[in-house]
Measured scan of single mutants.
Amino acid sequence: KEEVSSHTSPETGIWVTLGSEVFDVTEFVDLHPGGPSKLMLAAGGPLEPFWALYAVHNQSHVRELLAQYKIGEL
């Protein structure tokens, strides 16, 4: 988790977690339908608090999209 928390910018890579999985979403930030700034709120940390607020994320196609960016496990 400490390593994930240091990845919060395009220069270091933008990493997020979901459960025990780690994702590098650097290439996706500008494609995020809610805008880059919304995704950047989660940079370096867990997606769960944000996904709890926005139910649109609880769809299979969203998880499939995220899976493409998986880089490891906590």
Rank of each mutant, 00 (worst) to 15 (best):
K1G: 03
K1R: 06
E2F: 15
E2K: 12
E2G: 11
E3S: 15
E3N: 13
E3R: 11
E3K: 11
E3M: 14
V4K: 04
V4C: 09
V4D: 08
V4W: 06
V4I: 14
V4L: 13
S5K: 15
S5M: 15
S5F: 14
S5H: 14
S6F: 15
S6C: 15
S6N: 15
S6R: 15
H7E: 15
H7L: 04
H7R: 09
H7K: 10
H7T: 05
H7P: 05
H7Y: 09
T8H: 12
T8P: 09
T8I: 15
T8L: 13
T8D: 13
T8F: 15
T8C: 13
T8R: 14
T8A: 13
T8V: 15
S9Q: 14
S9D: 15
S9H: 15
S9A: 11
S9T: 13
S9G: 14
P10E: 12
P10H: 13
P10D: 10
P10F: 09
P10N: 12
E11H: 11
E11N: 13
E11Y: 05
E11A: 13
E11K: 11
E11F: 04
T12I: 08
T12Y: 07
T12C: 07
G13P: 03
G13I: 05
I14G: 02
I14F: 06
I14C: 06
I14W: 01
I14P: 00
I14T: 06
I14L: 12
W15N: 07
W15F: 11
W15H: 11
W15K: 03
V16F: 06
V16D: 02
V16N: 06
V16E: 06
V16W: 00
V16L: 05
V16K: 00
V16H: 05
T17Y: 05
T17P: 02
T17H: 10
T17I: 03
T17F: 10
L18C: 12
G19T: 03
G19F: 02
G19A: 11
G19K: 11
G19P: 04
S20D: 10
S20G: 13
S20Y: 10
S20R: 12
S20Q: 15
S20H: 12
E21K: 11
E21A: 13
E21G: 12
E21N: 12
E21H: 13
E21T: 12
V22A: 15
V22K: 05
V22F: 09
V22I: 15
F23P: 03
F23S: 03
F23H: 08
F23W: 00
F23R: 01
F23Q: 06
F23L: 03
F23T: 00
D24L: 03
D24I: 01
D24F: 01
D24C: 06
D24K: 06
D24R: 06
D24S: 04
D24M: 02
V25R: 00
V25W: 02
V25E: 01
T26H: 08
T26K: 04
T26R: 05
T26V: 02
T26P: 00
T26M: 05
T26W: 00
T26D: 00
E27Q: 13
E27P: 12
E27T: 11
E27F: 01
E27Y: 05
E27A: 11
E27C: 08
F28N: 00
F28K: 00
F28D: 00
F28E: 10
F28C: 05
F28A: 00
F28R: 00
V29F: 02
V29M: 10
V29K: 06
V29C: 08
V29R: 07
V29Q: 12
D30C: 06
D30N: 12
D30M: 07
D30H: 10
D30W: 12
D30F: 08
D30S: 10
L31A: 06
L31D: 06
L31R: 10
L31E: 07
L31H: 08
H32D: 10
H32G: 03
H32V: 00
H32S: 04
H32P: 09
H32A: 00
H32Y: 10
P33T: 02
P33A: 01
P33K: 00
P33L: 10
P33E: 02
P33I: 01
P33H: 02
P33Y: 00
P33Q: 03
P33D: 00
G34K: 06
G34Q: 01
G34M: 00
G34Y: 00
G34N: 11
G35S: 05
G35F: 01
G35Q: 06
G35K: 02
G35W: 03
P36A: 13
P36M: 07
P36N: 03
P36W: 11
P36E: 04
S37F: 05
S37C: 07
S37I: 08
S37M: 08
K38A: 09
K38W: 08
K38R: 09
K38I: 02
K38Y: 08
K38E: 02
K38M: 07
K38C: 09
L39K: 00
L39G: 01
L39F: 08
L39W: 03
L39C: 03
L39H: 00
L39D: 02
L39V: 11
M40Q: 06
M40T: 10
M40Y: 04
M40W: 06
M40V: 07
L41T: 06
L41F: 04
L41H: 07
L41W: 01
L41A: 10
L41N: 06
L41M: 12
L41G: 06
L41I: 05
L41C: 07
L41E: 12
A42M: 05
A42P: 15
A42S: 05
A42D: 01
A42C: 08
A43S: 02
A43I: 05
A43C: 02
A43G: 04
A43N: 04
A43R: 03
A43W: 04
G44P: 05
G44F: 01
G44C: 07
G44V: 09
G44Y: 03
G44H: 08
G45S: 10
G45L: 09
G45K: 14
G45T: 05
G45A: 13
G45W: 02
G45Q: 08
L47W: 04
L47F: 04
L47T: 01
L47C: 01
L47I: 06
E48T: 04
E48L: 08
E48R: 01
E48Q: 02
E48M: 00
E48F: 00
E48I: 14
E48H: 00
E48V: 12
E48D: 03
P49Q: 09
P49T: 07
P49E: 12
P49G: 05
P49S: 07
F50E: 07
F50S: 04
F50N: 03
F50D: 01
F50K: 06
F50A: 07
F50P: 04
W51F: 06
W51Y: 06
W51V: 00
W51M: 04
W51G: 02
W51K: 03
W51R: 00
W51S: 03
W51C: 03
W51Q: 04
A52F: 02
A52I: 05
A52Y: 04
A52L: 06
A52Q: 14
A52R: 13
A52C: 03
A52E: 15
L53M: 15
L53S: 14
L53D: 14
Y54L: 06
Y54Q: 07
Y54D: 10
Y54W: 03
Y54P: 09
Y54T: 06
Y54N: 15
Y54S: 12
A55G: 14
A55C: 10
A55T: 15
A55L: 06
A55K: 15
A55D: 15
A55F: 08
V56T: 08
V56D: 03
V56S: 07
V56W: 14
V56Y: 06
V56I: 06
V56A: 07
V56F: 14
V56L: 05
V56Q: 07
H57S: 06
H57Y: 08
H57Q: 02
H57E: 08
H57I: 01
H57C: 02
H57R: 01
N58E: 11
N58K: 13
N58W: 11
N58L: 11
Q59I: 02
Q59S: 13
Q59T: 12
S60Y: 11
S60T: 14
S60A: 12
S60P: 15
S60D: 10
S60F: 11
S60M: 12
S60R: 15
S60K: 14
H61P: 12
H61L: 04
V62K: 01
V62T: 02
V62S: 00
V62W: 07
R63F: 06
R63S: 07
R63L: 10
E64R: 11
E64M: 09
E64W: 04
E64C: 10
E64H: 10
E64F: 04
E64K: 14
E64Y: 05
E64A: 13
L65K: 11
L65Q: 11
L65H: 10
L65W: 08
L65F: 02
L66M: 13
L66Q: 02
L66G: 02
A67D: 14
A67T: 13
A67G: 14
A67F: 09
A67H: 12
A67K: 12
A67W: 09
A67Y: 13
Q68V: 10
Q68L: 10
Q68N: 08
Q68Y: 05
Q68M: 12
Q68P: 02
Q68T: 14
Y69T: 05
Y69C: 12
Y69R: 06
Y69F: 13
Y69H: 05
Y69Q: 05
K70M: 09
K70S: 05
K70Q: 09
K70I: 03
K70W: 07
K70T: 04
K70C: 12
I71W: 08
I71V: 15
I71T: 09
I71N: 07
I71H: 04
I71Q: 10
G72L: 10
G72N: 13
G72K: 03
G72V: 02
G72R: 09
E73V: 09
E73Y: 10
E73Q: 14
E73N: 11
E73K: 12
L74K: 11
L74V: 12
L74F: 15
